[in-house]
Nucleic acid binder design. Structure first.
Lengths: 274, 274
DNA sequence: TTGCTCCTCACGTCACGTGAGGTGGC
DNA sequence: TTGCTCCTCACGTCACGTGAGGTGGC
């Protein structure tokens, strides 16, 4: 009592297109229980309808086929639910990004941006505790949050306190290829042993042009554009990572009070105050 | 005072990857103001940063490049805003679909679905007023809403009233190819002249298996699966479009009171009551 | 000379969609 | 015989990403 149906009937029962069903067969995600040897006709069992509908639901949520496969092949309910939750969290993140993007579109399309102050500064060498890794552009927020959490946890466990605001280095490939080395650091004067992902770091002195960004990170590109423009106008750009200092981080009561220093490397001759 | 920068510098100022910038050049969405004749180096003007950042924002919202181009090339602020709003509406729709999908995932993954009653029925020929068109599966909700709105407007203008619940026919290609003919109709006894997209229609008598779906349209696939299964078990399927009758439409105070009749064509010998 | 930044192909990715051309059973 | 449903290639789509292999100026 598990009748077989043709691909067309199965399509109507599952809301999956015939092309999609053939594709799922080809990649062995959902295989017909029987294929006619002479005609090649695919025959599906009606008991496959549930699985097929689940696939369609997951695809509606833009879950990649490989992840759908993982969910379907999960050995138990536990791990299956975990896979689903992981995807929902991912969607939630994307949703938040979308909302901040929409919110800041108006800002972007408004004419006339106020010119913002640029300061030239020689930054001394800094000792600190750092976490570094290869980070994808879109994951930066989550990665940094986790990194600074870990760093501060290690600091407080060691009974040490930060000697300055949190900071991070972003290397060129991070921007130019959408993924690259990022180093999150907290300045400390004490010597600390490596723990977990954290390790001591020594940052060399450097000359930079600095602009302060006020507001949420979603609008940071505005400051990058403005600061990069100033550096280009003066023709004083120098190689090296871009550095950010989080003077007032996202822990603040409202976003608009967040303050981030963006430091763009420049040639040392420009070490004057504008 | 509009300095030129290399693609690497421009990448950092705009958060666009070098590969993306080269792609935008190739498709002429964002062209460098100058290309070095001997080396092929692209040189961008810093005044292009704003446009580039706008492109990135739109792409974050998954706006297709051609639509981004349309927005950027819009002759005036008016039409530009309209293009943006159209996209935001589209996103809003998708968001709603996502939410209903998430909500009904639990339902889907629960074991054991109650068996639901199937009735076999001979439907008489019906006269009506109809709107028909080629509809994409994902646009069905919006299309039907608009169609029935138009149909009821024409009816009330003509001083006529429906002779039965709203209904629609969905032809095989609609399911099997993800886009196909849909006919939305309202039964009427009066003769009405075609107006706008509406036209009189005459539906032939047909034999069907009927299952009543209770709840939102997002879960209709469950009923299709259950009804299709019954038809396949009996081996009584017949060619022809699937028909839905909207006994209680989405106008109701809460979704769970919505009632939809799904009518699956069967061979006429089965015209008995179960 | 070594590094660095940039370049151009050619091909890959993902999840199907789009025809073209053909078969088998009522 | 005509229609209908199904089949298999081969190629297209979209927005880039992935190397491979190479160039030019400090």
């Amino acid at each position: 009592v598990d009748p077989l149906v043709t691909i067309g009937e199965f399509s109507k029962m599952t809301y999956l297109s015939v092309k999609a069903l053939r594709h799922y067969h080809e990649v062995r995600l959902l295989e017909p229980v029987q294929v006619d040897a002479s005609s090649g006709y695919r025959l599906y069992a009606v008991s496959q309808v549930g699985t097929a509908q689940a696939i369609r639901r997951f695809r509606e949520l833009d879950m990649p086929l490989e992840q759908v496969r993982a969910v379907l092949e999960a050995p138990d309910v536990e791990s299956r639910n975990q896979a689903i939750l992981a995807h929902l969290e991912h969607m939630q993140q994307q949703l938040e990004r979308t909302q901040t993007t929409v919110a800041s579109l108006q800002e972007l399309l408004r004419e006339g941006h106020a010119t913002r102050a640029v300061e030239y500064r020689s930054i001394d060498a800094v000792r600190g505790l750092a976490v570094s890794g290869s980070v994808r552009f879109d994951d930066t927020g989550a990665w940094c949050t986790a990194a600074f959490e870990e760093l501060h946890a290690v600091l407080s466990t060691a009974g040490s306190t930060p000697a300055g605001p949190d900071g991070a280095l972003y290397f060129d490939e991070f921007f130019e290829e959408g993924e690259g080395r990022v180093i999150a650091f907290v300045p400390v004067t004490d010597e600390l042993a490596p723990t977990g992902r954290t390790a001591p770091i020594h940052l060399a002195a450097t000359d930079v042009a600095v602009m302060i960004h006020t507001g949420p990170f979603a609008d940071l590109d505005q400051t990058y554009g403005a600061l990069g423009t100033v550096v280009a106008e003066r023709g004083i750009g120098a190689p090296g990572p871009i550095r950010e200092h989080y003077l007032v981080g996202p822990g603040a009561p409202d976003e608009s009070s967040e303050r981030t220093e963006v430091c763009w490397p420049v040639i040392s001759a420009g070490a004057t105050v504008s």
